[in-house]
Write a protein that binds this DNA or RNA. Structure first.
Lengths: 213, 213
DNA sequence: GTTAGAGTGGAGTATCCGTTCCGCTTAGGT
DNA sequence: ACCTAAGCGGAACGGATACTCCACTCTAAC
């Protein structure tokens, strides 16, 4: 269930290496936090998270400094995971890479339902690392005729944003997301009806990604 | 800006008619609440709302009882507005009714960005009034060849849910929603690529709509 | 085995915010 | 003009929760 894998090496806030027991507690705290956020939403309280991890509140604050920093950490881990998916699929070089990526995004987001409110805003550094990868997947798909030229990178971004509304509503929704992707992808194929509204501007996307809270 | 119109006649909590000054304050409170929620999100505080409306906190509580009740009221007004749109478009009887409805939904939701978190859950009565209307718009569209038979009412529901993720991110996003609808509608046309995943079940949709908070 | 200092737990603190209460004000009927 | 009940404002209250602090514990280097 807990999709770990691409987690950074456990270090204290100042960057020094953690003692084995401390590293263990940190790992348990991260897992507990994901679970608690998924169940209670973003205002799950710190005390519950610590309790679920089997540690005291003091330990939580020694490891993460603030609740906000924990959420940032979780978001960054998630974005790193997505970046990894994209890179793997770029390496494969198939025209279906983009849609496979979107399907993996949906799955990963479903496992982190609780923090979606913070996913696409205030993480410039990670976002700007992901964007060119998506652009490349899109370019490949377009050059192989899987997606039509009219579709832009920002269309794909908006499609990823749109998953939040589906995922946050219920936990039976991972499937609903895949169906939603079926429809959106069908709309992006060559030969589908032309789009009548302009694509979102980069300026607007940037403004969205910069927003805090 | 403030799209009023279909607001219920101003009454006190017990249903008796309001004094003129009180009715005025209620209207100002509702407008202030929408604005405040749009700017600060769902945890805009009551004191700010009252201040923005130019009344005391006591007045707020006399009018609405609790903050939660206010949000419910706003959500119900919004759902009523959507129901009105649907009925008007059904009366017109065009195959394009469904897409016009979806476009109006996007616009209405954009003006109520702040309360989207509470829109599609915990309002069984209003939701169950809207659902058959959407089903009828869909049936008309399908019978006139505007949308293919494969598409279900729940697909349309999920599409409406998906707008939240786009709208909550930024205020430049009303346009982004229209573009997203362009793509999804293109994917729902006859002749578009077949869908590979099953549509969401009624049971799952119901479970989502029943969930509180 | 000793020991330094990293790590721990949880009571205590500060703050924020929803809600209540009550003495004063005012609309609107007679 | 008068009266009364509906309406008003905002200080005060209470509960929730993020975060601090420090006496104690335990890892791991020597």
């Amino acid at each position: 269930m807990a999709t770990l894998g691409s987690v950074a090496a456990p270090t204290a806030l100042d960057g020094t290496r953690l003692r084995r027991d401390a590293a263990d507690n940190q790992r348990r705290l991260l897992e507990a936090a994901v679970a608690e956020f998924n169940e209670q939403g973003m205002d799950a309280c710190v005390e519950q998270i610590a309790q679920r991890a089997g540690v005291g509140i003091g330990t939580f604050y020694r490891r993460f400094g603030t609740k906000d920093a924990l959420v940032d950490r979780l978001v960054e881990d998630l974005l790193t995971e997505l970046t990894g998916s994209a890179q793997r699929l770029i390496a494969a070089g198939e025209g279906a890479g983009l849609e496979l990526f979107l399907r993996e995004v949906a799955t990963a987001l479903a496992h982190h339902r609780g923090i979606l409110a913070r996913l696409w805003c205030g993480h410039q550094e990670h976002s700007s690392r992901l964007r060119p990868l998506v652009a490349e997947l899109l370019a490949t798909a377009q050059s192989q005729g899987a997606i039509r030229a009219e579709v832009t990178g920002n269309d794909v971004s908006v499609l990823m944003w749109s998953l939040r509304g589906i995922l946050e509503l219920t936990d039976a929704s991972a499937l609903a997301c895949q169906r939603h992707l079926d429809i959106a992808l069908a709309g992006m194929r060559p030969g589908a009806e032309p789009l009548t509204h302009p694509a979102m501007s980069d300026r607007a996307r940037l403004k969205a990604e910069q927003r805090r809270r």
